Amino acid sequence: MEKVPMTVRGEQLLRTELERLLKLRPQISEAIAEARELGDLKENAEYHAAREEQGICEAQIRDIEYKLSVAQVIDVSKMDNSGKVIFGATVTLIDLESDEEKKYQIVGDDEANIKLGLISVSSPMARGLIGKMEGDEVVITTPGGQKDFEIDRVEYL
């Protein structure tokens, strides 16, 4: 089984969601029991809704448990890579064309959220940055074409 990189924050978020879903299980079971008491199950909308909710909840629990079982949690705050871009690093880039500053953290696929500045380790941007050093200029191929960036700062938060 191949391990999948994940940040400490990503693991904590998954564990929190798993706890929430596990607490929801008994409530869903109660809703199913109450709906059963209402009579004919064929035409019982409450019963069918509760069963559907149970199926979704169980699928989410299995998915999170699987993700946690294959996760390789990497704590970059304990690493010193002297300005080298690695998984989990927060990178501040300067767009050489517009002089705009952008800040991204390289995270696992499930944690990625571009609106929050979290980019997937398998994204073209992250693949172009990993292994580079603070001060390097990099050319990244994006859907909008090639972009030139300078790596201004690399932090291990």
Rank of each mutant, 00 (worst) to 15 (best):
G10W: 03
A45N: 11
Y156N: 14
E137G: 06
V121A: 01
E30M: 08
T7G: 02
M6A: 07
I86T: 15
I74T: 05
D110Q: 05
K103H: 03
G108Y: 00
K84E: 15
V139M: 12
I74E: 06
A50L: 07
M125P: 02
L13R: 15
E46D: 10
R127C: 03
E52V: 04
E53W: 03
E155M: 09
T141S: 14
I106M: 04
L21S: 09
V85T: 02
L18H: 01
K115M: 10
A126G: 05
L24D: 13
A126N: 04
K103R: 15
E46G: 03
T142L: 14
G131W: 09
E46L: 09
P26M: 02
L157E: 15
M79C: 04
D109L: 06
L24M: 14
F87L: 01
M79R: 10
N44Y: 11
V91I: 13
N44D: 13
Y104E: 05
S98Y: 11
L38P: 08
Q72W: 03
K23E: 13
L93N: 09
E53A: 14
R36V: 09
T90N: 12
S123H: 03
L24E: 15
L18V: 02
A45W: 10
R25E: 11
M6Y: 01
G108I: 00
E53V: 05
S69V: 06
K84T: 12
E134M: 10
